[in-house]
Nucleic acid binder design. Sequence first.
DNA 1: GCCCTCGCTTGACGCACGTCAAGGCAGCGT
DNA 2: ACGCTGCCTTGACGTGCGTCAAGCGAGGGC
Lengths: 236, 236
Amino acid sequence: MPTVDAETLRGLPHFGGLDAVARRRIAAGSRVRTLERGEWLFRRGSEPRAFFHVLEGCVQLFRSTPEGREQVIHRLRAGQSFAEAAVLTMSAYPVNAVATSSPTRLIEVGASSFLQVLDEDPRVARAVVASLCRRLVRLVQRVDELSVSSFEARLARYLLDLPAAGDGDDLVVRLPLPKKDLAAFLGATPETLSRQLRRWRDAGVADSRGAHITLHQPDVLLAVVADIPVPSHLPV
Amino acid sequence: MPTVDAETLRGLPHFGGLDAVARRRIAAGSRVRTLERGEWLFRRGSEPRAFFHVLEGCVQLFRSTPEGREQVIHRLRAGQSFAEAAVLTMSAYPVNAVATSSPTRLIEVGASSFLQVLDEDPRVARAVVASLCRRLVRLVQRVDELSVSSFEARLARYLLDLPAAGDGDDLVVRLPLPKKDLAAFLGATPETLSRQLRRWRDAGVADSRGAHITLHQPDVLLAVVADIPVPSHLPV
DNA sequence: GCCCTCGCTTGACGCACGTCAAGGCAGCGT
DNA sequence: ACGCTGCCTTGACGTGCGTCAAGCGAGGGC
């Protein structure tokens, strides 16, 4: 059970400004955990004893219905923290969490030491408030997207938000996750994703070869994102 | 422009524990506003100069697409605060806000005095963090609901969450808002709402007369909420 | 009384997506 | 080589829900 170096905590957004004493206190209540792909970190409804910070790999937060349909709420990569809110309300984790790559290394910060430091140091409180706010705004956006925009629009937005390389007039992006997971993240099925990419290929808008997707007409995608139906002067 | 009595602030969740000095500071940066039904409080994208606390009436937060489709994010009634997150990030209101009843009275708390007190008093920070967390959890629930559950399930859950009066074996609830607004809140259209109520009436599950809805078989609705398809031993 | 507006209800119709089922194609172990 | 097992793709089909359009009933003004 590897413990956490107090120095390591300096890198975390919440604890960057802390003095050495407080940092050592947090470090004492923390440890590093390593998970394999597919391993569960916590389940929805269980008691939140800790929040987490991703050092390496990827964690997916999701909910699921009794029949197995799942909605991915969030994907966390290196440098991001999560589950602070659950710790702060001290009620229950509202989602499930599993690692989606191997190995995934995390810092697990114990609830009690975190709450103590939070009460004593206004700077931590400030940092936590800020990060909660950012998350809140992002969620508001997702509520909006999931209910009013089509799958096409959600996918277009996702692709345009990826880091892209130019290639002549085209943009080329690389999917950072398998297509079936991307589909789940966008609240749809792999079949729907596949069909949308097919339609774009037929229309000459975008081509996909494996995880590499070439956007021939990014402006069309931009119009889709804005939810303005594209004037169909396109060849069949 | 009526100013705010420092005593009034004692009633607000964020400021209940404050000392008189801090409260007077907040009061100086605040005022009471009265809106008519339909009046705008702020628009998405504008700069957040204040957050609000509802004293009376109702405020609706929503987003809308260029073509006019709207998604209601939240409805606030007396005793609730909103837009703290926008103030804290200091970027832009992520939603629109309008009053939906007349009169709607609000306390408008100026951003600068709020931020100052937040930095100085850890108790305020704690209260704000707690309220943000609650909101975050509720939003996570909505992301989940909007994407994985059917309209029927969302409506069932909404009805079961209303305060109900018993009447024999039946439960009777009163819709606190017009049906078209309810439909929007649940991310659907009035037609869809109408049809669902019709189906329940035909199945003998629930009857609606205006805003009064009688639930003859609450257990069926409970099953719907759990997303377990109801075994159809029901008469046509 | 009449007419207007608004909220609600119904029907007809279309489309986006989910589900089920059947391949194709890669990688990988034996 | 073989057959696994996953991931992706495609087709056929069903359905939830939005859109359009019509009609209904309850106010409210004149």
